[in-house]
């Protein structure tokens, strides 16, 4: 219970930290992905003339929304959590606190922001006449929870390794960029040549883009087995990441 209270405090602090001193305050959190969406839509729809394959295709922008928001939640949460321990070195050196809370809060704060943004844009799309299944929104949020578990697993791993090897946070933006383009965020699996399609299953993020598209837009499908598989992967990554974090935790102070 005290750990949870502490986590809430740090989430609040994380949200405030991000917008403390900025003119637009929290609004930026909602605008930034919208601007991103506008840029990507322009490039892909008007320059590359991207089309979503399939008969009842929902249009490229809704298709992109389903990939972009979950990706932002995942990648930004990961980027922030990676330096969570290092950034709070001063606090860790002076106050005894469960360090897991710092990593958890960094990821949770970002998922909270992106989750709210996601709900807002899904409802906005419905208002503008995009055939989004609003009744599937609670189901989609469950998908966010599952993605959160996966992100948390990677976050624990990266935050712990970052304490020892500082190169990680510098390499991470490139790594995440590579990861984004090797996930079906901008394209559908069907757009790939036949023989490469199976490779996507090795990417733990693939499931989520396809899940959100199927659940909310009715584009493509997701099976129970793939859901269980993704859940299994999330739990394994979480368990492994957390175990490594716990193992390295006693030595953080020595290397910070």
């Amino acid at each position: 219970m005290p750990a949870l209270r502490l986590a809430l405090h740090f989430i609040h602090r994380e949200l405030r930290n991000r917008y403390l001193g900025s003119f637009s305050g929290g609004l930026w959190a909602l605008f930034q992905p919208l601007i991103q969406l506008a840029v990507y839509s322009f490039v892909f729809v008007y320059v590359f003339k991207a089309k979503v394959p399939g008969a009842n295709a929902p249009g490229y922008i809704p298709f992109l929304v389903m990939g972009l928001w979950p990706w932002n939640a995942f990648a930004e949460g990961l980027a922030r959590a990676t330096t969570a321990i290092q950034d709070n070195a001063a606090l860790i050196g002076k106050v005894a606190l469960p360090r897991e809370v710092l990593v958890f809060s960094a990821v949770a704060a970002n998922f909270l922001l992106q989750g709210i943004g996601f709900c807002a844009i899904v409802i906005a799309m419905r208002v503008f006449g995009v055939p989004v299944d609003l009744f599937a929104l609670p189901l989609a949020l469950l998908g966010f929870v599952q993605l959160f578990v996966l992100a948390l697993g990677f976050a624990f791993l990266f935050a712990a390794v970052q304490v020892f090897v500082r190169d990680l946070s510098s390499a991470l933006p490139q790594l995440l960029m590579l990861w984004m383009f090797s996930s079906p965020v901008f394209f559908a699996r069907d757009a790939l040549p036949e023989r490469y399609r199976g490779w996507l299953d090795w990417n733990p993020f693939t499931y989520y883009t396809e899940f959100f598209r199927a659940a909310l837009l009715g584009a493509g499908s997701f099976s129970l087995s793939s859901t269980l598989m993704a859940l299994g992967v999330a739990v394994i990554v979480f368990t492994l990441g957390y175990a490594i974090f716990r193992r390295l935790n006693p030595y953080f102070e020595d290397f910070l």
Partner: peptide, 18 residues
């Protein structure tokens, strides 16, 4: 406290701890 002088020491320490 670990003796960390070289860049490689951190990586080695991480490996040994794991």
């Amino acid at each position: 406290y670990p003796k960390v002088f070289h860049r490689r020491d951190r990586l080695r320490a991480l490996y040994r701890l794991l």
